[in-house]
């Protein structure tokens, strides 16, 4: 690890100011950033910790949906969202191990947009809005490819708003080593229709499987998509599975998610 400065601002304004400096980088739970720094693959000059910024931690279910502070840990989402949005809480509870869940944050996960991460699938399927210190970004516009998002360099995810679907479920098939998603499928049945978001499979990150959505819109049952499988041509082949295998898993997991939706 290279040397760096460290600051822990208390307000969003101070955090934004600190981040505007050259070489400054936001630090959420550090579960992605710190290992990268330890391997000397990242060398921020200043880390701006967001975990003590006012209003950035917590799960608020008072409105119509669910608003989650950008620095809220996976563990807190797993427990505090369990009643209101069990599919989302279940997803959070399945990320990493207890140490990762007690440190890692939703903002960090969405900012990083790892193509095998879980939260992007929830955000896209739920039709979430990513709130930053500058604007609101709809999930559809937010995810822009592997590790690519609509965020500007110094933009902070302050909160994520999730509309709550009528029914939903997340199915994750783990990559055996990292236990990230080899493929993960989030199914959300909403008033505007069914959304199926797939993570882990595609080289360009999370995406919606529209063919399945169409079929599920007329009949929300596993049967409706029996035999349907997604196109493997854009999918990842690596030592843990071929594109064909991933495409197959997308079908299996979507059916399972539909059956388990509540």
């Amino acid at each position: 690890m290279y040397n760096f400065e460290f600051t822990k601002p208390k307000t969003i304004k101070d955090a934004a100011k600190a981040l505007a400096a050259d070489g400054a980088q936001a630090l959420g739970g550090g579960q992605t950033l710190l290992p990268t720094m330890k391997q000397r693959l990242a060398m921020p000059e200043t880390l701006v910790s967001l975990t003590e910024v006012d209003g950035m931690v917590g799960v608020d279910s008072r409105g119509t949906g669910l608003t989650i502070g950008g620095a809220t840990t996976h563990a807190q989402v797993a427990s505090d969202a369990a009643d209101v949005y069990p599919a989302l809480a279940g997803l959070a509870a399945g990320i990493g191990d207890p140490a990762v869940r007690n440190r890692g944050t939703i903002g960090g996960s969405l900012a990083n947009n790892d193509p095998a991460a879980c939260y992007p699938a929830a955000a896209l399927a739920s039709g979430a809005t990513i709130t930053t210190n500058k604007r609101d970004i709809h999930a559809v516009d937010y995810f822009q490819g592997m590790f690519e998002t609509a965020l500007a360099e110094d933009e902070i995810i302050t909160a994520v708003q999730f509309p709550i679907p009528q029914a939903g479920n997340y199915q994750k098939f783990v990559q055996p080593a990292s236990r990230f998603a080899l493929v993960g499928v989030f199914v959300a049945k909403t008033a505007d229709g069914v959304r199926v978001a797939v993570t882990g499979a595609s080289g360009s990150g999370v995406y919606r499987w529209t063919a399945a959505e169409t079929a599920l819109n007329s009949d929300f049952s596993a049967k409706a998509i029996e035999g349907l499988s997604d196109d493997p041509s854009e999918m990842i082949t690596d030592l843990h599975g071929t594109a064909a295998y991933r495409a197959h898993l997308v079908g299996v997991l979507t059916r399972r998610a539909v059956t388990a939706s509540r």
């Binding site: 599975g241 295998y245 197959h248």
Partner: peptide, 10 residues
């Protein structure tokens, strides 16, 4: 070996 899910499926 390793008899991974991907290999069994294949």
């Amino acid at each position: 070996m390793p008899v991974s899910p991907a290999r069994v499926w294949a």
